[in-house]
Simulated scan of single mutants.
Amino acid sequence: MTRAPEAHDADFRAFAVSRWPRLLRTAQLLTGHHHDAEDLVQVALAKAYARWHRVTQSADPDAYVWRIMINAHRDRIRGLRAFEWLTTRFPEQSVRDQAEQVLARDVLTSALQRLPPRQRAAVVLRYIEDRTETEVATLLGARIGTVRSRAARGLEKLRADPAVRDLRTQGKRQEVSRRAGAAGRTGVR
């Protein structure tokens, strides 16, 4: 017995609304740009809608849609003929902590963009999306050992990236400075 088109649409709409923020966050980390991320999520959801019956019949509908999005991103990268260079965005507010967070996010996003696409996908899914190695392997269509090596190599490249290293060093200096300032205000020496 087939379901009514209205129920099909309602199921898909509920799925899309509940998954949109997480899909968008992952897509933004994969693409490095908010507008490209929105386009990528829309493409993935359009493809999922066209195959919604198969998506709902799968063991893990979330993984199915994430896989569609990763494949769409891979196809998008293959189609790019010129590289895109991300610019540093200035914070809308001049609050120091928010500015530091924006700078750190931009540095990390830029560093992620310098990783090869497969390493980037492994790092984003494994550490930023907090997925298990098994889930990442399923999403990427790779073996668990391949996911481990891609993620390890990606993290190694991120740690070796001069901008990330400078950011980490600067963060440590600021933490020491904050602690020293707090100790001075409380009279602790």
Rank of each mutant, 00 (worst) to 15 (best):
A137P: 09
K157A: 15
A183F: 06
D97W: 04
R89Q: 12
G145Q: 05
Q119L: 09
A160N: 07
T88H: 04
R173S: 12
V123A: 02
A163T: 10
A180S: 08
P162I: 05
A182C: 01
L80M: 13
R78H: 13
T169E: 09
V124W: 07
Y127N: 00
T87H: 04
V107K: 10
P117M: 04
L167R: 09
E129S: 10
R148Y: 12
T169H: 09
A180L: 12
G141Q: 10
I144D: 13
A152K: 09
K157L: 11
P91C: 15
P116A: 15
E175G: 01
L158M: 10
S149T: 14
Q93H: 06
G187M: 02
I144V: 15
A182W: 01
L158W: 10
K172Y: 02
A183K: 08
T169V: 14
Q174L: 14
P162A: 04
T109W: 05
G145S: 13
G141V: 12
Y127L: 00
E133R: 00
G184K: 01
L112D: 07
R148N: 12
D161M: 05
R185A: 14
A99F: 01
E129K: 00
I144E: 09
V176S: 05
R173G: 03
L112R: 04
R131L: 15
G154M: 07
R126I: 04
R96C: 03
L167P: 04
G154Y: 03
R114G: 07
A142N: 00
R168L: 08
T132Q: 01
G141L: 11
G141M: 06
T109K: 08
Q113D: 11
R178Q: 08
P162M: 01
L80D: 06
A111D: 11
R179W: 08
R148W: 13
E175D: 10
I144W: 01
K157I: 03
E100I: 10
V123E: 06
R78D: 06
R173D: 14
Q170F: 01
A182I: 10
R120L: 14
L86Q: 14
L158G: 12
R114Y: 04
G187A: 03
Q93E: 07
D166S: 11
T87Y: 00
L155T: 12
S94C: 07
P116H: 13
E175P: 00
R120V: 11
R159I: 06
P91Y: 07
E156W: 09
T169S: 05
D106W: 07
P117E: 09
D166Q: 11
A82Y: 06
V164R: 03
R143A: 15
E100S: 11
L115I: 09
R185S: 11
R178P: 03
E156N: 13
R173H: 15
Y127R: 04
S110Y: 03
D166M: 03
R150G: 02
R105L: 10
I128F: 14
W85Y: 00
L139S: 03
A160P: 00
V164Q: 02
G171S: 12
L103Q: 11
A137T: 13
T88D: 10
R126V: 04
P117H: 10
S149C: 11
T134W: 01
G184F: 04
K157G: 05
A122Y: 01
G187N: 04
R143V: 09
V188S: 05
A163R: 01
R179T: 12
L155F: 09
Q113L: 13
R153P: 02
T169P: 00
R126C: 06
G141Y: 08
V188C: 02
E175V: 14
L167V: 01
